[in-house]
Design a protein around this nucleic acid. Structure first.
Lengths: 152, 152
DNA sequence: ATTGTTGCAAAGATTTTGCAATCTA
DNA sequence: TAGATTGCAAAATCTTTGCAACAAT
């Protein structure tokens, strides 16, 4: 799900209207593909070019985009919903490494769960539609820093 | 981390005081090991026997228990923090299957991520301390029902 | 013209915090 | 007794909703 055009097409196909607010919101998401933006963050990025758009509209747009499976909603352990554009390749959701020290989120685009999913399907008779995999730990930079200065 | 005694010992060892409120909160968690209770749910279970305990104290107690690694905090995609006692065996956090249809949460106690963690460590030089793995999909019961009545 | 969508402000839901009183060690 | 902890109410956050005005098809 890559270009603005394709996304607008899908919105339209599902019976939603194309409004300037929605276009602008999608544009922000496209410009920040790796960022896991929260609704508030999308809103403040949006304000620079479109100060008239309201926060409620951002929430509603993100809901619509989640509903039609243009974006994934994800919660890291901080209680704030974040939104990621889905990739075009039909893959399941990518994985994340979250650093407990600096808070950085690293994305992993390989699907490492194929074998695990097969086991789940067979053992639990559970039909998997998506997954959320996050590793918590210490990133390379913080490990390096801790060796000289100690983890803050 | 299994018995009330062991948990109280650890609290004490970390310099926290043992109060009746904390004891009671821990007892609730021990009585509902598989439940992924929210703070609100812990609070209302607590009220039956200890109506004097306040919700803020429940939040504070769960924070302390998370801090000293007696419980794991987890967010499924509904934005409410849930709390699980850690198991005694030193294993990482268990996995979950969340049914998109009926909302049921099924626990999986096997660690299926050993190989994946090895790859992450080597490829990303990321020191993993824990993980969160949730599969979203349709559970066995809902699959069965959908075959006769259609998924509601 | 119809129906969906927006902005605003108000309401909801969850979680955190200030503070005086109280309790644990 | 000293310092941590509690309960309460207020505040802070994040998110949703009602409604009248407005815009897309």
């Amino acid at each position: 799900m890559d270009s603005l055009d394709k996304i607008e097409e899908k919105l339209h196909a599902k019976g939603f209207k194309l409004t300037p607010q929605r276009r602008a919101t999608i544009a922000i998401l496209l410009e920040h593909k790796e960022s896991h933006l929260s609704a508030e963050e999308v809103y403040s990025l949006l304000q620079k070019k479109h100060p008239e758009v309201g926060l409620a509209t951002v929430y509603r747009t993100l809901d619509v985009l989640t509903e039609i499976e243009i974006v994934n909603r994800i919660n890291f352990e901080d209680g704030v919903a974040r939104f990621d554009l889905k990739t075009d390749d039909g893959q399941h959701f990518h994985h994340h490494l979250v650093c407990n020290n600096c808070g950085r989120v690293i994305e992993i685009h390989e699907d490492m769960l194929f074998d695990v999913e097969q086991r789940i399907k067979h053992q639990y008779h559970f039909e998997i539609t998506d997954h959320r995999l996050t590793f918590l730990g210490i990133c390379q930079d913080c490990i390096r820093k801790s060796k000289t200065r100690g983890v803050s």
